[in-house]
C-alpha cells in the first residue's frame, strides 16, 4: 500500500458520522483569511518579523504589477520553464528506459542495482558547481542539473512497477506465445503505470528544485537569477512575488501530473472504490 489514497481511507465510519453536517472544507477555506491575517499582524501591525525575511502583504501585492511588467520578465519565465521541462523530459526518459532495460534482465538488474540504489542517497545538488564548471551558466547546464535530479525517481518506480504484474497474467501471455515485447507493452507497462506516475510526480518536483538551485548558484537568466538580483537590491517584496510564482508552477505541475494520471490510469481509482474488491 502506498501513501497515495491513504488520506481517503482513514477509519471512514469512525468519527465521521457525527460531523456530517460540517464539512472540513469550511475549515480549509476559513484558514486562508486567518493565515493572511497572521501575516499582516506579524509584519504590518506588530513588525515582529524582519522585513528582510517576510515583507508586509501590502508591499507584496504592490510588487506584483512591478515584477510582472518588468522588462524581459516573460523571457525569464520561459527560460526557467524550459529548463524544468527539458530536464524533466530528459531525466524521465532516461530513467524510464533504464528501468525497462533492467527489468527485462535479471542479470543486469542484480549487477547494476547496487550502484543505482546508491544514487538514491546522493544529494544531486553537490554536482551543481561541477556542471557549471563543465558547461557554463547557460540553459543546457540547468537542464542537465534538473535531469539528474529527477532521473532516479522515475527509474526506480519504473523498475519496481514493471515487477508488479501478476504471475497469472504473465502465464496467460506465455500460453498465447506472446513475445517479450508484447508482454512488456500489453501487461507490464500498463500494470506499472500507477507507480510510474508516482515517480513522475516526485521527479517533476525535484527537477524544479534542481533548476532553481542551479540558477541560484550561477546563471545568466531565469527566475532564480531574478530572485538573486531582487534580494541583492533588498527588494524582498519582489522576491516574494516570484516565490508565489514558483508555488503556482509547482502546483500546476503537481496537479497536472495527478490529473494526467487520473485520465490515463483511469481503471485504478474506480477499482479501488469498488467496495467488494476491497475484501480481498
Amino acid at each position: 500500500m502506498t501513501r497515495t489514497e491513504v488520506i481517503a481511507q482513514i477509519a471512514i465510519d469512525q468519527s465521521e458520522k457525527k460531523r456530517k453536517k460540517f464539512s472540513p472544507y469550511i475549515v480549509t477555506v476559513g484558514l486562508l483569511p486567518l493565515i493572511l491575517l497572521a501575516w499582516w499582524l506579524a509584519t504590518t501591525v506588530t513588525k515582529s518579523v524582519s522585513p528582510i525575511l517576510l515583507p508586509t502583504p501590502e508591499s507584496v501585492v504592490a510588487a506584483f504589477p512591478r515584477v510582472l511588467s518588468a522588462m524581459g520578465f516573460g523571457d525569464q519565465v520561459i527560460r526557467t520553464l524550459l529548463e524544468i521541462a527539458g530536464g524533466f523530459v530528459l531525466g524521465a526518459t532516461v530513467g524510464f528506459f533504464l528501468g525497462v532495460l533492467l527489468s527485462s534482465s535479471n542479470r543486469l538488474r542484480t549487477a547494476y542495482l547496487p550502484f543505482l540504489s546508491a544514487l538514491e542517497a546522493i544529494p544531486t545538488v553537490i554536482l551543481a558547481p561541477l556542471i557549471i564548471a563543465w558547461i557554463g551558466f547557460g540553459v543546457e547546464g540547468k537542464i542537465l542539473q534538473a535531469a539528474i535530479a529527477c532521473f532516479y525517481a522515475v527509474f526506480i518506480t519504473t523498475l519496481s512497477g514493471l515487477g508488479l504484474a501478476e504471475p497469472s497474467a504473465i502465464n496467460l501471455m506465455r500460453s498465447l506465445k506472446a513475445s517479450r515485447w508484447q508482454v512488456m507493452t500489453k501487461v507490464r507497462i500498463p500494470t506499472a503505470l500507477p507507480v510510474i506516475f508516482g515517480g513522475l510526480q516526485l521527479g517533476a518536483t525535484t527537477a524544479i528544485i534542481g533548476a532553481i538551485v542551479s540558477e541560484f548558484i550561477g546563471s545568466t537568466g531565469g527566475l532564480g537569477y531574478l530572485m538573486i538580483r531582487y534580494r541583492g537590491g533588498y527588494d524582498t517584496a519582489a522576491y516574494w512575488v516570484i516565490i508565489f510564482l514558483f508555488l503556482v508552477i509547482g502546483l500546476v505541475v503537481y496537479l497536472g501530473i495527478w490529473y494526467a494520471e487520473r485520465k490515463i490510469v483511469f481503471w485504478r481509482r474506480t477499482e479501488i472504490t469498488r467496495p467488494d474488491l476491497e475484501k480481498q
Binding site: R3, I7, F197, G203
Partner: peptide, 21 residues
Amino acid sequence: MTATTTTMPPTPRASAPLVAR
C-alpha cells in the same frame, strides 16, 4: 467513501521496496 474525506494526490517517494536485493 464518505463525502467528507478527500483523496490527497499522491505524495510519492522513490524507494525500492519491491526490488529485492
